[in-house]
Design a protein around this nucleic acid. Structure first.
Lengths: 93, 93
DNA sequence: ATCGTTCATCGTAGATATACGATGACACAT
DNA sequence: ATGTGTCATCGTATATCTACGATGAACGAT
């Protein structure tokens, strides 16, 4: 016992993805709205569109959200399994 | 509704502090042991002593742990209120 | 007073994160 | 084909993070 475990790495990876106010706000908004186009997210944040897109990418790589192309738009929503996973890992502390 | 709230910033701040495997491992160890001297933490991690001390500082600034000087040693333990706070904030997602 | 132990801080190199303008890619119109 | 609206990616500047050797500060023992 002592070294960093796989669970430590997984939790750190997810926590890091949530380690920026904009990304927390995005997740919260998606949970409230169910799903949301990128533009709406941009409108709700005091950040430029490329910056928001970059934050969305971080959340997507972490697996917390998924993006579905819908015509000219991209619709984002949370992956409830990953949100559950975060809650379990934090709750397991 | 839309902009980043104070709760978003607080959660992001705490999540960021947990956004490194070593820091998660430290918190977990402290929760398991109750309290722990710095040296024991160093021994349990594949990192140099200054690096561990730096990680401890991050956790301390975030309020997740507190350090008490005990002779030549420094005894660390988690602040249970802050751990509760993290769980509540994550659970509230 | 000097030494050994324990831990923090300093200084620094390399990597990663954050922000945005500019540009590219794609779908849907006209 | 041309244009418009939507979003991703590129390029880049600045800041922050991560790691460690070297050094400093504080305590207990000799």
């Amino acid at each position: 016992m002592g070294a960093m475990t796989a669970a430590d790495t997984e939790l750190a990876r997810l926590a890091k993805a949530l380690g920026h106010p904009a990304r927390v706000a995005i997740v919260r908004r998606l949970l409230a709205r169910g799903e949301c186009a990128c533009g709406e997210i941009v409108d709700g944040l005091p950040l430029a569109q490329p910056t928001v897109s970059q934050h969305l990418k971080v959340l997507k790589i972490a697996g917390l959200i998924v993006g579905e192309v819908d015509g000219p738009r991209v619709c984002y929503c949370v992956d409830p399994r990953m949100v559950r996973r975060v809650k379990d890992l934090i709750g397991g502390l």
